[in-house]
Design a binder for these strands. Structure first.
Length: 610
RNA sequence: GCGCCGGUAGCUCAGUUGGACAGAGCAUCGGAUUUCUAAUCCGACGGUCGCAGGUUCGAGUCCUGCCCGGCGCGCCA
């Protein structure tokens, strides 16, 4: 099964070709329902290139166009738009082909995999070890995971690499500090916890900055580490293990899986990177540092801006290790596409690293290197996101707070118990079906739901925003039950699942007989939305834009709510005749499966009850 | 100083290689309720798309200049 958009595009392209017209068919979803479901904007451009008026060209294309199997006869409107209206018969036929439970491809709704699978590396999360993950790691982790899931769904072989900061001076500093001040800690490394490690780090850094002797001691420890001193390595490993344990506790809660491959992995590769650069004449010394100069990069004085790949003290820096990642990912992992999910502030750095990799010939034309940059997470007021004391906000505490707030939303029966809200409101509110569904829940079940809703809210809110912009982190908004939020969508999912239970049907083994009946406007609108899932994934993948997917899922949820609404919509469970009832239940099932699949591509779990 | 990224409704944000009268949510106001989970649905109100020029059949989108905000610009990552 392929997307309707692609199908129409191919048809228009064929018609254009038959007329000898060049150009993209420019088929898009219509901007307004009055203009149908899809429109082609190709006639205006084609007319300019080939002569004639746009409307004449559009009419000529219509003459060659065969879409009778899926659309009403298309018409030409305005300056030369071609408008397409899908027929209910086509909608019913297309959705009817979606595999039902147990059929091959059912879990992916019959959506085709790419014809050209490639190896894609996604570089995501990448926290520094010895410190707790903080709010700054949220976006890379969540966006990177989402992008990986989408590309994986398309059939690509995706490798998620967690480029953790597990090497460098901070570790020498930490070891030296503990040796000097708390040797007992080193005797019992099993008892080390991340909070201690971070506290020690802060103390060590402070000492490092004011005590020359300690600074020297730290640097000597770094050298010992680099030379592979067994005892120093043992301590370093313990630090890394504890840090990674902390990170993976968070990844597990966030439902993110990835491979740790820290900077230390590239220790042996970095000298080779340097050797190759020097051997091939791509790098030269400048002020004692080894540099690669690429065209188009300037310092503030207008001089050529170097990418420093070896510092004047002989040490490597992050440019070196990033180049090493490129070499490893292309030459060893076989990547044809490498996506670095890193804050937008580092754009220049990656532009330079990529340019250097091209110059060195490591990344040829067949390899794409992409920096998927994103903006900052700001506080609700728009200021930088800090604790009251001015420190960084721990990711774990952020997650815990969201979960706690989700729990209080659940307990108040859907009325947000925000500060200042009227606490009596919940008591006065009449009982609802949702209340009844929650009535028999244990505290444990409520906890589980709160965990899912709270974390879904954070992730969804992040992914819902355009990547390049900063956004304001606002728990009230992301946990709201109305609007484009995770709770709204999870609720829509839970509602559909409840319909199955109430109707006495197990959707997980639902293999309906007979075709879909699409007559009511709400049925047709829901069917159209369902059918747009495939093209939405295409677009989200092509542009690496998760918010394309969130916007779609919100639209689908909305269409479902209308479909199921007692005024605007249709009866389902008690619908007559039986064929109509089955058809509507099938639409419900397709909605739930589409939402579940779509949310899973965002890394969000769905709920049976809420 | 140079470069990059932003500026869209009171607020938070979408806006698909330029397409039809600029969209959604929140907030505000109004309507629907003996509930198939109303944690929902419908309606109203609300915009000089930062400003000024330009390109063209057509500009929130492209170009130029300016204003405001953020970030970056040789040995931290």
């Amino acid at each position: 099964m392929r997307s309707t958009l692609r199908e129409l595009s191919d048809r228009v392209a064929a018609a254009m070709a038959a007329l000898g017209l060049e150009g993209d068919p420019l088929v898009r979803p219509s901007t307004d329902p009055r203009f149908g479901d899809y429109q082609s904007n190709c006639a205006m451009g084609a007319a300019r290139r080939a002569g004639g008026t746009p409307r004449e060209v559009a009419e000529a294309i219509l003459g060659k166009l065969d879409v009778a199997d899926c659309c009403e006869p298309p018409d030409v409107a305005g300056p030369g738009f071609i408008n397409f209206r899908l027929t209910p018969a086509f909608l019913a036929r297309s959705l009817g082909r979606v595999p039902t439970a147990g059929e091959p491809g059912a879990e992916r709704l019959g959506i085709d995999r790419t014809d050209h699978p490639t190896v894609v590396v996604v570089d995501l999360s990448s926290p520094n070890l010895a410190k707790e993950m903080h709010v700054g790691h949220l976006r890379s982790t969540v966006i990177g995971d989402c992008v990986a899931r989408i590309l994986e769904f398309q059939g690509h072989h995706v490798i998620r690499e967690n480029h953790v900061g597990d090497w460098g001076t901070q570790f020498g500093m930490l070891v030296a500090y503990l040796r000097r001040t708390r040797p007992n800690v080193l005797d019992d490394l099993d008892r080390l916890v991340i909070a201690d490690l971070e506290a020690f780090y802060v103390e060590a850094k402070s000492l490092f900055d004011r005590d020359e002797a300690f600074k020297k001691q730290s640097q000597e420890t770094v050298v010992r580490l680099q030379r592979g001193d067994a005892e120093t390595l043992r301590i370093w490993r313990a630090f890394c293990n504890e840090s990674l344990r902390h990170c993976h506790a968070i990844y597990e809660r966030l439902n993110v899986s990835l491979i740790d491959r820290g900077e230390s992995f590239y220790n042996d590769l970095m000298p080779q990177v340097i050797d190759r650069l020097m051997r091939d004449g791509h790098a030269r010394e400048s002020d004692g540092a080894l540099c690669v100069f690429c065209d188009g990069f300037q310092t503030r004085e207008g001089a050529p801006l170097p990418l420093i790949v070896r510092k004047s003290d002989g040490g490597y820096n992050y440019a070196t290790s990033d180049l090493a990642t490129i070499v490893h990912r292309i030459e060893t992992l076989g990547a044809r596409r490498v996506i670095y999910v890193v804050g937008i502030a580092q754009k220049l750095h990656f532009d330079m690293v990529f340019a250097a990799a091209r110059k060195a010939g490591w990344a040829g034309e067949g390899v794409a290197l992409e920096h998927l940059g994103f903006g900052n997470v700001l506080s609700a007021s728009g200021a930088p996101f800090k604790t009251r004391e001015g420190g960084t906000v721990k990711l774990k505490s952020l997650m815990d707070e969201a979960v706690a707030r989700a729990r209080s939303v659940l307990e108040s029966g859907g009325v947000i118990a925000a500060a200042g809200a009227d606490e009596d409101a919940a008591a006065d509110r009449p009982a609802t079906g949702a209340d009844a569904a929650r009535a028999g829940m244990t505290s444990q079940e409520m906890d589980d739901i709160a965990e899912t809703v709270g974390l879904a809210a954070i992730k969804y809110f992040d992914l819902q925003h355009n990547l390049v912009k900063d956004y304001k982190f606002d728990l009230d908004t992301m946990l709201a039950l109305d609007g484009n939020t995770a709770p709204y969508m999870l609720y829509a999912c839970a509602r559909v699942r409840a319909i199955g239970r109430k109707a006495g049907i197990d959707f997980d083994s639902f293999c309906p007989e007979g075709g879909l009946v699409l007559e009511h406007p709400a049925e047709i609108a829901l069917a159209k939305s369902l059918l747009r899932f495939a093209e939405t994934i295409d677009q989200a993948a092509a542009d690496l834009r998760p918010n394309v997917l969130t916007d779609y899922l919100y639209d689908l949820s909305k269409q479902f709510s209308r479909f199921y609404d007692r005024k605007q919509g249709v009866r389902v469970i008690d619908a007559e005749p039986p064929g109509v009832r089955v058809s509507r239940l099938r639409l419900c099932d397709l909605t739930a499966r589409t939402l579940k699949l779509g949310l899973s591509l965002l890394g969000i779990r769905t709920l049976e009850r809420m």
